[in-house]
Design a protein around this nucleic acid. Structure first.
Lengths: 196, 196
DNA sequence: AGCTAAGCGGAACGACGTCCCGATTTCGAC
DNA sequence: GTCGAAATCGGGACGTCGTTCCGCTTAGCT
């Protein structure tokens, strides 16, 4: 409902009303199903809940990644925007980094199965991977560089590697009471500190 | 070839010769396929390579976990036995822990897809999870307790959580040149150090 | 050699992702 | 209002995979 329906309308004919309705129904259905059954729920479940045929889901969201991105876009954007903000409000860059990573972890662990799918080398999820990288990697890089410039952390760690590691640590964090991803991520961020 | 064929022979009739042959063929085929296609390779690929029917694989290995365990049992045992040994040969318990974790990581990252499947909450892999816990958790606990007793690390970390975290960090470590699981695991072990 | 049951192979089934195609609906033009 | 082209739809069809079933084969004992 943001770019494709408005900016595209200037160059091409707008989508038909029923198509827009179906797209929204699919987004709502997917959001609901994702909460109960995780992001890997069968396509048929989602299309059934939305009251449309299975092909309709592919028409609006060619890959499952597109659907997942559409459902979570707002939250990912919020996370991206929180990065620079934290840098100005926190006592030190390392504190800002830690808080931002916390936000990221919170997002991942509350979305059933999202962390799993994010690391999957399944080709169908390439777009999801790419979107996260596009949107969050620059933010993480900025925080990391600020902390490195302040001499708080060792400078030899790449943002990509850190984010991937954090994402990995979040896998299965729901569904296992004995495993607290937040604590391990905290350890990892601690380990980042410059030994001085 | 270890217990089920000998100790079981005392109480029950030994397996037929062709059954033993097929079991070995399946193990060899699985080992080969796991290297090329990962541990999640289709059942049919494995049975085809072994020259047997698909049902035969289920007869010998009721779940995929059983097959994976059988293929890697020797290496897992070796890893388990290395723990106490490292404790006596290393300078400090923390060094022993770090070296042992290194062995564990090496094992995981060189077995295509094993780390992924190890964390999967898929019911079919319960036995694999259980086997790792059974065999390696006590070893890790011993190392962790020795390091904690020496005051080298914070005492509030569970072996289960650590192993799970390390396993998670190893996911997808092959197939991504920009991601070095070893380095992140090293960071995590560093973060474990007691702040003194 | 003959018997018996352990063991076998591959067809069959269900779940799933994906694609195709005839039917339906929308909406601008008149 | 109504009409027709184009957009869109629905659900059935197909391929893949895990798993199970069942009639046949064969090892191993007598």
């Amino acid at each position: 409902m943001n770019d494709s329906d408005q900016s595209a309308a200037r160059t091409a004919r707008p989508k038909r009303a029923d198509a827009q309705r179906n797209k929204k129904a699919l987004l709502d259905a997917a959001a609901a199903i994702f909460v109960t059954s995780g992001v890997e729920a069968p396509v048929r479940d989602i299309s059934a809940k939305a009251g449309v045929g299975t092909a309709t889901i592919y028409r609006h969201f060619p890959t499952r990644a597109d659907l997942i991105i559409a459902v979570f876009r707002h939250q990912i954007e919020a996370c991206a925007e929180a990065g620079p903000a934290l840098l100005t409000t926190s006592a030190t860059p390392h504190a800002a980094l830690a808080q931002w990573i916390d936000l990221f972890v919170d997002f991942l662990v509350t979305k059933h199965g999202l962390a799993t799918v994010l690391q999957s080398d399944n080709a169908g999820f390439d777009a999801l991977h790419a979107y996260f990288i596009d949107r969050l990697l620059p933010v993480c890089t900025q925080l990391l560089e600020a902390a490195a410039a302040a001499g708080e952390i060792r400078p030899d760690i790449e943002a990509y590697e850190l984010m991937r590691g954090v994402g990995n640590l979040c896998i299965g964090a729901d569904s296992d009471a004995r495993y607290d991803a937040r604590r391990l991520v905290g350890l990892l961020i601690d380990g980042l500190r410059q030994p001085h």
